[in-house]
Design a protein around this nucleic acid. Structure first.
Lengths: 341, 341
DNA sequence: CTGTTAGCGCGTTCAT
DNA sequence: ATGAACGCGCTAACAG
């Protein structure tokens, strides 16, 4: 029997340091905290030595208990295997670390029950703030949590939940895509999106798409969702004589993956038979066919910005709700080389 | 000024529940913990109601303080943007949740200083166990931590650190790749790996590769590292007349990405001019050229297995060190269609 | 400047 | 079966 369970006991505590340095716990506490200025050099040095000799590490749990400050930020992610989420999370984590916070990430795997459990969990660990990148199907619990701590939504709004929000300027991104496609001579555009499922960013993209199509006489457009029938739908789109050269507009990286798969199944000549532009910029886009044209999201900035929002609130900012929309950046590759004749 | 800082105070505590149910804190504690059997039905129900009505959530920080059990597992990841790491982490997280543990993930971004900081951090939060997927350039601190808690290495060994270890059966994977390439008629194989940098799995793969090449009269082989000169090296390989049909063997997903990029730069006809087999199975492999043949790692299992190792140790298992190697699985795609004439 | 005291929220003896 | 009291490691209020 190993004694990892007893290991906790053997850890050196503040009292050990105090005794070793022949001072009181309070002094050690001051040394650890932000009150080091109040200490005489002599005592400060004694404590410093004692800490070094004993290898003392303050127990964050205990600190958190007492001060109500755990220096922990929680992040709820719908799908940790989505590269977008990872990239944003990386931005959040970096910003956290720079400000002395740590990040606890909870992946819900798009499961409502897991979302609920994770919310309870994060709360039980006294996190100081929450970053949410899920559907938020538990409005009430989110609401309740939001009364206890600042909250910022990433990419997706949650209905009837008033909070700061960081994401993409979806209308701008859609316009950028359509401008590019139109300029390159495409006329018949098919938007491919994941099922809405209440995801605000997806809805915004499709809505803007429809609105823009209605306003652009040169273009015609329809939209479909990914799923088991994607290939069949794509086939129909490709086979139906349209108003001109055809192109796909994939509303995110997952849709781009699925669409490219489907195009290959259909023996499509990538990308001669049909153009393709995709939101997100994944590292394999350049490798497929002649390369996939992308609308890159500044994921690092989105993540950092989300954390900074939180930090401001933690520091007492009580200003009006903030909504930060970052612009997408067009990266042209072969998939929209256009109509060459 | 908002009062998120005061929010902690307003949270409902065990005492609130006790008073509401007109019982003692001890009874509530028993209800929360594993001693529910000791309570009379009447009192148990009163407590249950009180908890529900007040929305009480036990404070994990306080529990951890008292019992030394935080139900927290730490994971140190070298590069969170590596799909392999994500996949393993997903496996770990799932297993954690199933057993009532939570996962705190720390990304070191391959930076030694960050690794050090994160280690100190994880320790200060009283995690109960640690899963390490980094170079472990801080042997001493890892060693010290390992005296306090169980530790399991994933994918990469750390020299002179004795601990459980979960990863891939690298020799088997390499053999599988070479068998396949040989069978398909390739004769001249170039292994592409990321710089070793002390990473045991990379070293094992290359060593096995060299050993096997030496033993297989039909094959000849060399190896190179990714980096700024990758394209040039590849060009040399392709241009140099060899012992027969050429193929690349990418030692992981990153190498596969870099190599494919380079091949495109060289205007290679994927994959007619040269074959390709890659370790890891990323979701875009099927989309490139005629599809990239893969050696898939059972990442989910690797992650779950790592956690279970930890759990056994936490439960007192003091048996000998365990090393668990999972086999790779071959997924044949167009990039190794072989020599057709 | 420094030490003493009293909790933070909870689990765990000890009584009853 | 239940409750009272103490302490986990630490910070904050108050003395001195």
């Amino acid at each position: 029997m190993n004694d990892f369970s007893a290991a906790q006991r053997s850890r050196v505590t503040m009292l050990d340091v105090a005794e070793h340095a022949k001072v009181s716990k309070a002094s050690v506490s001051r040394f650890i905290g932000d009150d080091r200025a109040l200490l005489s050099d002599a005592i400060a040095q004694r404590i410093e030595r004692a800490i070094a000799e004993l290898g003392y590490r303050p127990n964050q749990m205990a600190r958190g208990l007492k001060r109500g400050r755990t220096r922990l930020i929680g992040m709820l992610v719908a799908d940790i295997r989505n590269p977008y989420s990872i990239a944003v999370m990386h931005g959040v984590e970096t910003a956290c670390r720079q400000h002395g916070y740590s990040l606890v990430v909870c992946n819900t795997d798009r499961d409502d029950e897991q979302e609920r459990q994770h919310l309870a969990l994060l709360r039980s660990y006294n996190i100081e703030g929450l970053i949410v990148n899920t559907l938020g199907h538990h409005r009430d619990e989110l609401q309740e949590l939001h009364r206890e701590m600042p909250l910022v939504l990433v990419d997706r709004k949650v209905e009837h939940l008033e909070s700061d929000m960081v994401g993409l300027d979806n209308p701008q991104a859609v316009d950028l895509a359509l401008n590019h496609l139109e300029e390159r001579g495409y006329r018949d555009v098919l938007l491919v999106t994941e099922p809405f499922d209440g995801t605000s960013s997806r809805i915004e993209r499709v809505n803007r798409f429809k609105a823009q199509i209605a306003q652009r006489p040169a273009l015609s457009g329809t939209s479909i969702e990914t799923g088991s029938e994607l290939t069949a739908h794509l086939k129909t789109f490709l086979d139906t004589p349209g108003t001109g050269p055809k192109a796909l507009f994939c509303a995110n990286g997952i849709a781009a993956l699925a669409s490219t798969h489907a195009l290959r199944e259909l023996q499509c000549n990538l990308f001669e038979d049909v153009g393709l532009i995709a939101l997100d910029d994944l590292d394999w886009y350049p490798l497929v066919g002649s390369g996939i044209t992308a609308l890159a999201q500044p994921t690092q900035e989105i993540g950092a910005s989300a954390f900074e929002c939180l930090l401001k609130r933690l520091r007492g900012d009580d200003g009006p709700l903030r909504t930060i929309d970052f612009p997408a950046r067009l990266i042209v590759r072969g998939s929209t080389h256009g109509v060459l004749r």
